[in-house]
Amino acid sequence: MFPTIRTVRAPEESARAFVYRVLSMYIRELFLRPGEKLVEGNVAHALQVSRTPVHDTFSRLIREKMLQPAPRGAVVPPLNPDAILQLIWMYRTTTVAVLGELYNSRPASLEVLEHCVADQYKALRSGSTVQMAGLERVFLTELYTLADRLPVLQALEYTGTDLYRLLRMMEDERMWKFIVDCHTDLVQGLALRNHEEAVTALEAEYDLFIPLLEECRYRFPSFFQGA
Rank of each mutant, 00 (worst) to 15 (best):
Pro3Thr: 02
Ile5Tyr: 10
Ala17Gln: 12
Tyr20Pro: 00
Met25Trp: 10
Tyr26Val: 03
Ile27Lys: 05
Leu30Trp: 02
Pro34Asp: 05
Glu36Asp: 12
Lys37His: 11
Glu40Asp: 13
Asn42Ile: 07
Asn42Lys: 15
Asn42Leu: 10
Val43Ile: 13
Val43Arg: 00
His45Phe: 13
Ala46Glu: 12
Val49Asp: 05
Ser50Glu: 12
Thr57Phe: 07
Thr57Gln: 08
Leu61Val: 05
Ile62Phe: 03
Gln68Ile: 06
Ala70Asp: 15
Ala70Cys: 06
Pro71Phe: 06
Arg72Trp: 11
Gly73Val: 03
Ala74Met: 06
Leu85Met: 14
Leu85Pro: 00
Ile88Glu: 03
Ile88Leu: 03
Ile88Pro: 01
Ile88Trp: 07
Tyr91Val: 08
Arg92Asn: 09
Thr95Tyr: 02
Gly100Phe: 04
Glu101Trp: 01
Leu102Trp: 02
Pro107Ser: 07
Ala108Asp: 12
Glu111Tyr: 07
Glu114Leu: 12
Cys116Val: 08
Ala118Val: 10
Leu124Gln: 08
Leu124Arg: 05
Arg125Ala: 14
Ser128Arg: 15
Thr129Ala: 10
Val130Met: 13
Ala133Phe: 05
Leu135Ile: 04
Arg137Ser: 13
Phe139Lys: 01
Glu142Ser: 09
Thr145Phe: 01
Thr145Tyr: 05
Leu153Arg: 00
Tyr158Cys: 09
Gly160Thr: 07
Tyr164Ile: 05
Arg165Thr: 01
Leu167Val: 01
Met169Phe: 12
Met169Thr: 14
Thr184Cys: 03
Leu186Thr: 01
Arg193Tyr: 11
Asn194Cys: 10
Glu196Ala: 14
Val199Met: 07
Val199Asn: 03
Leu202Phe: 02
Ala204Ser: 12
Glu205Asp: 09
Glu205Gly: 06
Leu208Ser: 10
Phe209Ser: 00
Ile210Glu: 14
Ile210Cys: 08
Glu214Tyr: 08
Pro221Trp: 11
